[in-house]
Design a protein around this nucleic acid. Structure first.
Lengths: 140, 140
DNA sequence: TTATTTGCAAACTGTTTGCACAGAA
DNA sequence: TTCTGTGCAAACAGTTTGCAAATAA
């Protein structure tokens, strides 16, 4: 579910330099429709720039996250996973057999979470939720 | 929400040795009603055994987890957090200001999650969910 | 030109592990 | 006695950082 990141605009606005590395990282992320880790982003970015360092990917990813353009996730596999920050909030279901990530949004769930927090005496400011499932056999 | 862990029974059943360190770790966990990290468990355990090593806490915690007596959580603060495995499933709400963890169980939520997974073509095998909130002012 | 960014390697955090010694059984 | 468990320090994985060289503006 990718959108686009306009790195040129971000650099212009912030007075940052539009480097080949930043463009490569953004290009990789913009054309990924999975939720790649830094290592994956780095591997994919080496196609465009065979010399790019992992440290640069970490720095760029942080830059984008702080600019609100990138969303960081923790799916519990030890490394951070990223996706372009869509303004439409959604949750994730992870296929435990393939690792594939399915995005979904359920308004009833969103509402329910807010109500639960309130019942406990809290205002909900954030939540994380991942469902883990196995694909149902089509014949079932 | 603590229960008890019978480490003597576990050791007996598994042919493991009942050491002072294992007893100290279990005692700490059994008398904690928060969700301590390994570091916290280690600090608390040094009261009973000033020489206990962090590595031992890691090993014991893993032993207990594999025995199904302990539950590991990831609240996103970088280190694993533990609590005694109650047979009653529940989720967590984390107070973002104090770090306090509130446990809750909402049957409607459990049901809804299962339905969502099914609608997406999956059988729900696990889920993780944490709500993050700020305490509502009592006067509101 | 020159201040920012990069690449590299070293540092850091949470966790695991190899090994010789300590200590339950 | 004997073999498991411990403490220690080294090893790990993911991530961050200091610094000198590279480069966008």
């Amino acid at each position: 579910m990718e959108t686009k990141i306009d790195i040129a605009a971000l650099c212009a606005k912030r007075g940052l330099r539009l480097t080949a590395q930043r463009q490569a990282v953004v290009e990789v992320i913009s054309s990924s429709d999975d939720h790649p880790s830094v290592e994956t982003i780095h591997q994919r970015a080496t196609v465009a720039d065979s010399k790019i360092a992992v440290a640069t990917v970490y720095r760029t990813v942080r830059l984008l996250e702080e600019a609100g353009l990138l969303q960081r996730h923790d799916f519990g596999d030890g490394s951070a996973r990223f996706e372009i920050n869509q303004d439409t909030h959604h949750d994730h279901l992870i296929d435990v057999q393939t690792g594939k990530v399915v995005e979904f949004l359920d308004p009833e769930l969103e509402q329910l979470q807010k109500r639960i927090a309130e019942k406990l005496g809290f205002k909900l400011v954030d939540h994380r939720m991942e469902l883990y499932g196995v694909a149902l056999d089509k014949s079932d």
